[in-house]
Write a protein that binds this DNA or RNA. Structure first.
Lengths: 368, 368
DNA sequence: GCACCTTCTGGGAGCGCTCTCAGAGCCCTG
DNA sequence: CAGGGCTCTGAGAGCGCTCCCAGAAGGTGC
C-alpha cells in the first residue's frame, strides 16, 4: 500500500534534495488497527471514545495504542471533522498597557486553564500595526481555529466584523464601545464591574468622612474609563466638574492630573484614581506638594496590581478585579457557543449572554 | 470528478442530523483551478510562489484566488507537507513571577513579532500542575507544531527530554541549570547577561565610593540568581559573606533580606538587589530603619520593570534587560533550526548557538 | 525538416483520519 | 429451526492539498 520508502535515503547522497523533514514514521491509526487485529474504523471508534465497540476489542486497541505510542494526527482529523480544537486569542492593544501591566498574563492564564480543560489549544495572535489586521483576518478566514477571543476593542475595530464574516464565534474581553454594541444581543462580552468598583471606592472615601472627592480618569475613549467615571458620578451626581481630571493610565499622566486637580481645588481631601499606575503618580505629586496621605488626602486606586499597589508609599487602597476569572469566563462562554451549534450533542440552553464580574475593595493605608 | 453535491441538501429535510458544521463551502484549490482554467497542480504552484509557471497563467490564478477569496486549508497542507507553520511556547513557571511581572508579555511580544514575520503561529501551552506535563508532552508528540520555545527550566524539567524524544527542535529561554547543560552543544538558549549586569551594578556602586556593598540574591536554585550573584562576586572576590542575603524575588522577601543584612552589618552603605521587586521591599525596610537612600545607603535593582523602578521612593537605579529582544531572538534561533534541516532552501551556516543579550544600567535616584 | 532537449502543465496518488453503509454475527421469538 | 431484529465490524470514499511523473509544447542544431 505504502510504496514510498523514504526512510533510508541512498547512502552517500549527501546533497539529498528531500523536501520533507520525514522525522520519524509516527504510528498511524492503520498500524494500531493492524496490531490490534481490527479494522481502521474500529480503532478510530475506540480512540474516539469507543462507543459501540465490544469491551474486549476496546482493550486490544488501547493496548496497541499504548505499545505503539500512537497519537492521532490532528491535521488529518481536522481535515475531515472541520474541527480544530483550537481557539485564537487576538490582542489588538498595540503598545500600551497590555505589555506593561500583568493583566495580560493573568488573562491568558485564565483562558489557558479553561481551554486546556476542554482539550483546546490557544493560538495567540497579536496586532501591532494596521496591516496586521490583514494577516490576522486571513488566518481567521483560513479556518484554523474554531473560535476567537477578542481583547480591548476600540470603536472602529474591524475584528468583530471579520469574525462575523467568516462565521467564527467570538467573545470579547471588556465592554465594546461602539454605538449599538450594547443592544447587539449577539455580541457576547465579559467585563469587570468597573462602574460598581468605582462606586465602592467613592463609597469608601465617603465613609471615611471625605467630602471633596476628586477623580483621575483613564482615557475617556475606553469603556473601562467611562464606566469608572460613571460609577464615581453615580454617587456624586452633582459633583464639581473641577474635581475630575483625565489621565492616561500611566503614572506620569496620573501625576499630571493630580497636579492639575491640586491647582484647581487645593481643598480636595480625597482622590479616586481609575488605575493603580495613575494612583502611584498621584501619590508622588501629593508627597511633593506636602500633602500627607491619607491624613490630608485619601487615595484609592483601581486594579490591584500587586506589584504597584502593595508597594507604594503608603500602600494603596484599591479596587480589585479578578482578571483571571475574566479570562476563564471568556473561554467558557466561547466553548459553550462552540458546542452549542456544533450539533445536537449538547443540550439547548439559549445563547450565552455577557457577564460582568464583581470587583471588591482592598483596604491598605492610602485610604483608611 | 467531484461527485458529491452537498451544496443544496434535499429541500425540506429540516430535521437533518448532519454532524458537520459545514458552515460555508470555502473555496478549494480545485475551484480556483477551475475558475482560472488550469489544473489543481498549477494553481497550487502559483499559490506557493509560482515557480515554473508562465506569468500569464499566474495572473489568471491570482485573479481567481482574489475573486473567490481563497485561503489555503492549512490542515490539508500540513497533512502532506508535515509542516505546521506553528511553534509552541511552553510556559512552565507554575505560579510565580511570570504572572505578576510584565516579562511574560514582553517575551510573547518579541516572539510573536518574529514568528508572524515568518508566517508562523504561536501556540501557547501552560503548565501548572504535574499532570500538565503529560498533556503538553502528548501535544508535542502529536506533531502539531514544528518547534518549541521553552521557558525558565528547572533542574529536572522533563520538557527538553520530551522535545528531544519526539524530535522537535527547541530553544530555551534563560540559561538551563542542570549539570552538563553548559557543555551540551545541542542545547540552544537565550539569556540576558545577568552576570555582566550585576557587575555593572556593583561597578556603579563602587564608582560612587561605596565600600560595604551588600547584595540580596534571588532564589539560588535559579540560574539567573546564581549568575547575578556571580557577577557581584566577580568584583568583590573577597567580600564578606555576611553581606549576602537570599531573597525570593518578591518585595516581601527583599524586605526580609534587607532587615537581616541591616542586623548583621549595620554599617553597609550600598545594596545590590537582584530584582526590582526585592529592591522595592528593601527600600521600604531602609526607610523604616531611618536610612536615607541614596545618602546613607545606595540601592541598585535589576530588571527595570518600569512600573516598579520608576515609581519607588526614590526611583530606582537598576539594570535593564531587553526582554522583548530575548523573545525575538529565541524565535529567530528556532526558525533557523527549522529551515536548517528542512531542506536545502536555506544556506548552511552550522547549528545556531546560544546567545547572551547585553544589559545596561539605568540611573535614577536610588544610587547616584 | 526531424531528432533532441528544455520548459510547462496536468493526472493521479496519497497524507491520516472519520463516517456512511452494508453486511456479518448473534440472540430471541414463534 | 427459520425469520426478524439487534449489535458490532470493516470496506471504502473522501476531506484539500502537494508532488511525482509523464506527456505536451516550444525551441534549437544539424
Amino acid at each position: 500500500m505504502t510504496e514510498r520508502s523514504d526512510h533510508q535515503p541512498p547512502a552517500g547522497s549527501a546533497g539529498s534534495t528531500l523536501p520533507r523533514p520525514h522525522l520519524d514514521p509516527r504510528p498511524t491509526l492503520e498500524s494500531v488497527a493492524e496490531r490490534a487485529g481490527v479494522s481502521r474504523a474500529t480503532a478510530s471508534r475506540v480512540v474516539n471514545g469507543g462507543a459501540g465497540v465490544r469491551e474486549e476489542l476496546q482493550e486490544k486497541v488501547r493496548r496497541a495504542v499504548d505499545e505503539l505510542g500512537y497519537v492521532p494526527n490532528l491535521a488529518a482529523r481536522t481535515l475531515v471533522t472541520r474541527r480544530n480544537q483550537a481557539v485564537a486569542v487576538v490582542v489588538a492593544e498595540p503598545e500600551s498597557r497590555i505589555f506593561s501591566d500583568p493583566f495580560f498574563a493573568q488573562h491568558l492564564r485564565g483562558i489557558g486553564r479553561e481551554l486546556s480543560a476542554a482539550d483546546n489549544q490557544m493560538v495567540l495572535l497579536m496586532i501591532e500595526e494596521q496591516r496586521d489586521y490583514d494577516r490576522v483576518g486571513r488566518y481567521l478566514a483560513g479556518g484554523h481555529v474554531d473560535g476567537v477571543l477578542l481583547f480591548s476593542l476600540h470603536h472602529s475595530d474591524p475584528l468583530p466584523q471579520i469574525a462575523r464574516r467568516v462565521g467564527l464565534p467570538f467573545v470579547v474581553g471588556g465592554r465594546p464601545g461602539w454605538a449599538g454594541a450594547e443592544s447587539d444581543r449577539e455580541l457576547v462580552y465579559v467585563d469587570s464591574d468597573n462602574r460598581g468598583g468605582a462606586r465602592l471606592a467613592v463609597q469608601h472615601l465617603r465613609g471615611l468622612g471625605r467630602r471633596r472627592i476628586a477623580t483621575i480618569t483613564g482615557p475617556l475613549d475606553q469603556t473601562s474609563s467611562i464606566d469608572r467615571l460613571d460609577g464615581y458620578r453615580d454617587l456624586l451626581p452633582d459633583g464639581d466638574p473641577e474635581l475630575i481630571a483625565e489621565g492616561d493610565f500611566t503614572p506620569d499622566g496620573g501625576g499630571r492630573a493630580m497636579a492639575a486637580l491640586l491647582a484647581r481645588r487645593p481643598d480636595l481631601d480625597a482622590v479616586f484614581a481609575a488605575s493603580d499606575s495613575m494612583a502611584s503618580g498621584a501619590l508622588r505629586v501629593l508627597r511633593e506638594a506636602g500633602r500627607r496621605v491619607p491624613q490630608d488626602v485619601a487615595v484609592v486606586g483601581f486594579d490591584d496590581v500587586e506589584s504597584i499597589a502593595a508597594w507604594t508609599e503608603p500602600p494603596l487602597t484599591t479596587v480589585r478585579q479578578d482578571i483571571e476569572e475574566m479570562g476563564r469566563l471568556m473561554a467558557r462562554l466561547l466553548l459553550r457557543q462552540l458546542s452549542g451549534d456544533g450539533g445536537p450533542a449538547v443540550g439547548r440552553g439559549g445563547a450565552p449572554t455577557s457577564v460582568i464580574i464583581p470587583t471588591r475593595l482592598v483596604e491598605r493605608d492610602s485610604a483608611k
